[in-house]
Design a protein around this nucleic acid. Structure first.
Length: 288
DNA sequence: AACCCGTACAACCGCCTGCTT
DNA sequence: CAAGCAGGCGGTTGTACGGGT
């Protein structure tokens, strides 16, 4: 018995998604929620494979997605997580708020694998805080280092296929913005502070020690995946309401959001809190 | 201006896993 | 318990773009 194809391939659109398709997908998921990907295209009126819809949503349209400009801190984290986890892109992505496995995988394949190879050849035993500063002429210089406020460059800027008239484009943009805001009220807060916080985080906390030591087993508890049960928090660290499996309930998230509380999952993680926590005595024994 | 080539990244494909029936 | 299904994952491909010649 052969595998049932995920969808009939005939008559389906392929390739780059148009803004109109994005809008249809966002509207549908906003109204009906995620899931039932196989049936979604038909119900939503999209001429796309269900898998394609899922990928588009998860990697690009989902609220809280950060696009482009992977910072040096994030790169270092990816490199170390890759050293630890291998090509487990989804696991690595789970530890980088707002990043997707596809983006990390692409970035690794195009940039980091070469960089790591170079570093290995140049200095096989170099530690993280001794990493070569990038050459000033390097084309891989992170824009976030050059500009006080990182400019997100996305593929969309290069998109030449947008066929929507301006009013509809505005509609799509505002829809996406409101959708993101409704799911992550703190996005404006984080966009300006994220790079600072992550820098402090990596400065305060030698992640190399974590990843290269036996304590790596603590990774899951100290770098919780979204929706994953967490068993170590700072003492001043309060979780929103969560269910028995440790998953945060939506009403709890709402309350958190409204109260502007420090923990902001999915793209708005408070690195300072975590850093100070990890330096504290409660910190999973990481600074031993 | 035209062509070539390398890079970046969006999207596709097939397999695997876990859940449901 | 087995079969079917949905969703997830990682590898790979396709394509747009920019720079060099």
């Amino acid at each position: 018995m052969g595998r049932r194809p995920c969808c009939a391939k005939e008559g389906l659109n392929r390739g780059i998604w148009t803004a109109g398709e994005d809008k249809i997908l966002v509207d549908y998921i906003e109204a009906h929620g995620e899931g039932k990907w196989r049936d979604l295209p038909q119900r939503a009126g999209l001429k796309r494979c269900g898998k394609s819809c899922r990928l588009r949503w998860l990697n690009y349209l989902r609220p809280g997605i950060k696009r482009g400009n992977i910072s040096m801190d994030e790169e270092e984290l990816i490199i170390r997580l890759h050293k630890l986890l291998g090509n487990r892109w989804s696991l690595i992505a789970g530890r980088l708020p707002g990043r997707t496995d596809n983006e990390i995988k692409n970035h690794w394949n195009t940039n980091l694998s070469k960089k790591v190879q170079d570093q290995t050849h140049q200095n096989p035993v170099k530690r993280s805080n001794e990493l070569e500063p990038r050459s000033e002429t390097s084309k891989e210089e992170s824009p976030s280092r050059l500009e006080p406020h990182p400019v997100i460059r996305t593929k969309a800027i290069r998109c030449t296929r947008v066929i929507l008239p301006p009013p509809l484009m505005d509609q799509v943009a505002s829809k996406a913005t409101s959708f993101r805001n409704s799911n992550s009220e703190t996005s404006s807060y984080t966009s300006s502070r994220q790079s600072d916080l992550s820098s402090h985080f990596l400065a305060d906390f030698n992640i190399d020690d974590l990843l290269m030591s036996d304590e790596a087993q603590n990774l899951d508890s100290c770098f919780p995946l979204e929706g994953e049960k967490v068993n170590c928090y700072p003492s001043n660290f309060t979780l929103p309401a969560h269910d028995d499996a440790g998953c945060i309930r939506s009403e709890g998230l709402d309350r958190w959001r409204d109260n502007d509380e420090p923990f902001q999952p999915n793209g708005s993680f408070d690195f300072n809190s975590l850093a100070s926590f990890l330096n504290s005595d409660d910190g999973c024994g990481l600074d031993e």
